[in-house]
Amino acid sequence: MIKEAMKTVSDLWSLMVGLKVTGRYFLEPQVTVRYPWKAVDNIDTFKGHLELVPSKDPFKPKCISCGMCALACPSNCLTVVKRKPPKPTPEEEKAQAEAKANGEKVKDKTPKDPEKFIYDYTLCSLCGTCMENCPAGALRFSGNVYQAGYSRNDFLFELVAHMQTKADASPKTEFEPPVAETSEA
């Protein structure tokens, strides 16, 4: 009988303990980050969409148009358009024909960088397989958290042009958050 009464009291006490916990947290500071004014501190670890890595020339990608990325991609969101070989001048044509006749290897003059690198962000699942399979290390994640658009076409990137416009703009304005300043927490 007494045992049961004690149990009832301890049961009711557990309710008080719960109130104490919520009461304590009520008085403690908040842990949320008020987003538009502050951003979380690990925003740089986000992947973001793909972009091409420029070579020494900031307008020319490292890409060698081998197409490994498109082959590896699980969702077929990459299309690499190779450059057509430049139209050879008559002398070159002659030289080539001669070389061929001599059994020499014809040197391919085609520039290796792609003409177009089409990337559909709506399909991409950000797995990173393309980057890992790129022999030239020409792809990377942009870390652009603020990618937003009004239509599907806004997510259809032409990465070569994207890289060039980015190189055009001064490097300082690279995807700054609307109001920069990361929180301390």
Binding site: D11, L12, S14, L15, V17, G18, K20, V21, T22
Partner: peptide, 12 residues
């Protein structure tokens, strides 16, 4: 311990 106090031990 907080989880235990707030929830696990709660009689309800």
């Amino acid at each position: 311990p907080m989880y235990k106090d707030l929830v696990t031990d709660n009689i309800i």
